[in-house]
Every structure is written in structure tokens, then in C-alpha cells.
Design a protein around this nucleic acid. Structure first.
Length: 289
DNA sequence: AAATCGGACAACCGCGACATT
DNA sequence: CAATGTCGCGGTTGTCCGATT
């Protein structure tokens, strides 16, 4: 249950601080020191709430504040610390003398997150965006392989059926993103490719591909519980029993061979990074002590 | 020259943690 | 132990200002 906002009191100023207010605040703190923010405004002759005074002092008036000109070294440090600590701006600021949490937060939101994105890195997870996409592609091809096997089995046991093409509903792989907690963001996955006109990869065939977060249930996942992939929805399985569907799949499966190679390389990279992650973990612990 | 847009950053707000009564 | 007060944090909003149309 939240308390009433302290700045809603009638008669208190809000918005940008004037030079006069700054002077009053600095003068008061120089004499009496920081703290007692609740009573400070009254004593200092300011018509501001204590929170506002505290913020103004910590983020702007404090004498030891460095302003602007964040160096490439600081850039790098912020990125590394963010990778370790997440949005713990005060902790990050604590490692950067003269920088405030607010400044770092703003700098992150306006500069660094864009910089990382432009480098193909997810600013929330610090993982390569292409890796996320690659993983999804691999899982898709695995799903299709399974489906192909299933279709073959069906062919052997059932008479061929004629199925008319249905409009495709295939979500664009390139539009996935990772959320802060490491899950994929499916809300962005429909978008432009969700309409009937977009039939990339599957020709005119009817495939309804839906998010499939529980790959482990099918023995496909690697057991870490964080995987997301595709499955072809059950009610569409029958659409794959005719030959034309499988022809379309062959292109994808050819592609999946090279994806398997890429996946091998990816696993090797992961292995190589394990040592580095171990080092970073111990570094993070040292920061939090 | 005016309008619009977008980046940068200061300031606000809600809430949780902790301290005090 | 519960109620209340204070502080600090992180997310969001508002405003300023330069660039672009």
C-alpha cells in the first residue's frame, strides 16, 4: 500500500529549480549537512518537498559531481557493470566516482542501449541478438524434421489425402527479442508477417506456427527450462501429408543442415565463454560485498 | 521563418526497505 | 508487533533545445 505522494501538498513548487533555490539549498547543506530531508525545505526556506531537495542535491548540486563528458573507459565500465548488475543504477554509479545514478540511467537509456543494439547486442541481456534468432531457427528446423518423420509415418499408414492450401500464419523470426528476465517477447513476433500475403519460407502451404515454450516436454530442449521454439499446431498436422508440402520443407531442411553446423559452432563458443563467465561472476560478487 | 521531430536530461512518482515510535 | 515516518531506488514523464523539413 503506497503512501500519499509527498510533493502533492498545495503551495510547494515543482518543476525546474531556480538559481535562487539552488543557492538556498547549497547554503543550508554547507552549514547543516545532508539528511533530514523531510524537514530540510522548511528550515532552508524552500517551498519544495524533501524528496525534491534530496534529488536536486544528489544529482546536481553536490560539489563532487562530474558532469557530462563520459569517457570511453567509463562507457565500457558502465556496459560491463550493467551486464553484471542489471539496472542497479546506484550500484553502478557507486563504481564511477562523481557520477550519479540518474546520470548513468539517462546515459544508458539514451546512448548505450542504442549503441549495443547497433552492435547487434540485446541491451537487456547483453547477448548477441543474432544468437537468439539463430537458436529459434534451429529449433524450428528440428520441429520440422520431427514433423517430416511423423508425416512419413502417416503416409505409410494412411491413404493420401488432398488438402487445399491454406493461408500461412508465420511469424517473422527476425522480430523476436529477449525480455529483461531472459524470456522471449512474443508480443512483437506477429506484426507485418502475420497477414496472408507474407509466405516467406513456406510458399503457399498451410503452416500455422505457434510459440512453443516447453520444448523439454518433447525431449527437444536442453533442460535449462528457458527455451522457446516453434511447434506446428496439432490441428494443422494433416496439412503436411501431401507431397508438395514436403517439397517446400526440403528447402528448409537443406538450410537446417548449415544451421546445424552453425549450432555446433555456437556450442563451442558457449564453452569458450564459460571461463569468462566464471570470472565475471566472481567479479560481480566482489562488487556486491 | 515557422512547425515539427527527436535527443538529452532534469525532475517526478510510486513503492519497497528500514528505522522509529 | 503494528503503525508510521523516512530514505533511497528505479521507472517514467516533462521540458528544453538543436536539427530537420
Amino acid at each position: 500500500m503506497g503512501r500519499a505522494p509527498c510533493c502533492s501538498k498545495v503551495g510547494l513548487y515543482r518543476g525546474p529549480w531556480t538559481a535562487k533555490e539552488d543557492t538556498l539549498l547549497k547554503k543550508y547543506i554547507r552549514v547543516h549537512g545532508e539528511g533530514n530531508w523531510r524537514s530540510l525545505p522548511k528550515k532552508a526556506g524552500l517551498l519544495r518537498c524533501g524528496k525534491s531537495c534530496r534529488l536536486r542535491w544528489l544529482n546536481y548540486l553536490r560539489p563532487d559531481i562530474k558532469r557530462g563528458n563520459i569517457t570511453p573507459d567509463e562507457d565500457d565500465l558502465i556496459i560491463r557493470l550493467h551486464a553484471l548488475l542489471g539496472n542497479k543504477w546506484s550500484l553502478i554509479a557507486g563504481r564511477l566516482p562523481g557520477r550519479t545514478d540518474n546520470e548513468i540511467k539517462n546515459y544508458w537509456n539514451t546512448h548505450l542501449s542504442k549503441k549495443l543494439r547497433s552492435q547487434g547486442t540485446d541491451p537487456n541481456t547483453h547477448k548477441k541478438l543474432s544468437e537468439s534468432v539463430q537458436e529459434l531457427k534451429i529449433r524450428t528446423s528440428n520441429s520440422i524434421k520431427k514433423l517430416k518423420q511423423k508425416s512419413k509415418a502417416n503416409e505409410e499408414t494412411e491413404k493420401p489425402k488432398i488438402h487445399y492450401p491454406k493461408p500461412i500464419r508465420f511469424t517473422s523470426l527476425s522480430s523476436f527479442s529477449m525480455s529483461r528476465n531472459g524470456n522471449f517477447d512474443w508480443t512483437t513476433a506477429s506484426g507485418t508477417s502475420g497477414h496472408e500475403g507474407d509466405r516467406r519460407g513456406f510458399g503457399t502451404d498451410a503452416v500455422d506456427v505457434v510459440p512453443w515454450p516447453n520444448l523439454e516436454d518433447e525431449g527437444i530442449g536442453n533442460g535449462n527450462g528457458n527455451e522457446v521454439g516453434f511447434r506446428i499446431s496439432d490441428d494443422q498436422d494433416q496439412d503436411f501429408v501431401n507431397g508438395s508440402d514436403l517439397e517446400c520443407l526440403s528447402d528448409i531442411l537443406t538450410c537446417s543442415t548449415s544451421l546445424e553446423k552453425l549450432y555446433e559452432e555456437y556450442l563451442q563458443l558457449l564453452k569458450a565463454e564459460e571461463d569468462q563467465i566464471e570470472y565475471l561472476d566472481s567479479f560481480a560478487e566482489s562488487l556486491l560485498i
